[in-house]
């Protein structure tokens, strides 16, 4: 597919990069990325992927925009309060780059719907904010051999890893199981600096673009740890776990699991929303 003059102009700063060129841009324009969560991680990630020209971007989020989101979830603006986040996300990405096809999924992922959604995409970005979704997404991506870019944030800390099923470890190789319900008396409201979420979300976008272009060394088998207070990045090794519950040769998990939300803060929030609804 030949690039139009407008495309050449729009993407010129990345087309001139070594290892990108018109061929690389063509790969980006044909790529399909699914972003799970349009919050602190998904928002900056989505912006950069749309700006780069990723052809199709799926946005999954069941929440509506709230005022307290705007400190970090930069896809949404004050006028969007009350709108489904997928809608405001789509508006913003389309305004940035009308070429990008944005598909919205204003739903909560579970074992019954995730396979149908991820099958249309080349790569999945996990920007979710809870353990049940994290493990569901990991398992679904491993089972269907879908590349997954993981990141997590808490206060001034961030973690990121790329998962290429079959080639490297998965999230369960790193953390075999989510914290059990009952073992967790309460969660703390962590708080997050918007810029810290931005660092991690942009790292995810960077991994997605490297994957699409086939350049560099992805964060496969390596967990990147960001400490915002020290401004340090560290990397620890993540070997493949030969006993991994989902990606080993003898997986114990062959069916998706819907873990219950154990976070008391989120449960409380749900009650609160029901009360005012």
């Amino acid at each position: 597919m030949a690039l139009t003059n407008e495309q050449i102009e729009r993407y010129s700063r990345q087309i001139i990069l070594p290892n990108v060129g018109g061929k690389g841009q063509d790969k980006i324009l044909k790529a399909k990325a699914l972003i799970i969560g349009t919050g602190g991680l998904g928002a900056p990630c989505g912006f950069y992927l749309a700006a780069a020209g990723v052809g199709k971007i799926g946005l999954v989020d069941s929440d509506k925009v709230e005022l307290n989101n705007l400190q970090r979830q930069i896809l949404h603006i004050t006028a969007d309060i009350g709108l489904p986040k997928t809608e405001s996300g789509k508006k913003r990405l389309a305004a940035l780059n009308p070429e990008v096809e944005v598909i919205t999924y204003p739903i909560r992922l579970d074992s019954t719907n995730i396979m149908e959604i991820i099958k249309d995409y080349d790569v999945v970005v996990d920007g979710s904010d809870n353990f049940p979704t994290r493990y569901l997404v990991n398992d679904a991506c491993v089972i269907t051999k879908k590349p997954l870019i993981h990141a997590g944030i808490f206060r001034y800390d961030g973690q990121a890893m790329a998962i290429l099923p079959g080639q490297g470890p998965c999230y369960r190789c790193l953390f075999p199981e989510p914290p059990p319900i009952g073992a967790v008396p309460s969660c703390q409201e962590g708080g997050i600096l918007g810029a810290v979420a931005g660092v991690l979300g942009v790292l995810q976008a960077n991994e997605v673009l490297k994957f699409i272009l086939g350049i560099g060394e992805m964060l496969v088998g390596r967990l990147l740890i960001f400490n915002a207070l020290d401004s340090t990045f560290r990397i620890v090794k993540v070997p493949r776990d030969k006993d991994c519950l989902v990606c080993s040769e003898h997986p114990q998990i062959s069916k998706l699991i819907d873990y219950q939300e154990f976070c008391s803060l989120k449960v409380k929030k749900d009650c609160y929303i029901k009360k005012i609804a």
Binding site: F131, Q159, P179, Q188, L265
Partner: peptide, 15 residues
């Protein structure tokens, strides 16, 4: 030595 827990949006799995 680093102690690294799984993290997910405000939840660390222990309080």
């Amino acid at each position: 030595v680093s102690i690294i827990p799984a993290i997910a949006g405000g939840c660390y799995g222990f309080d």
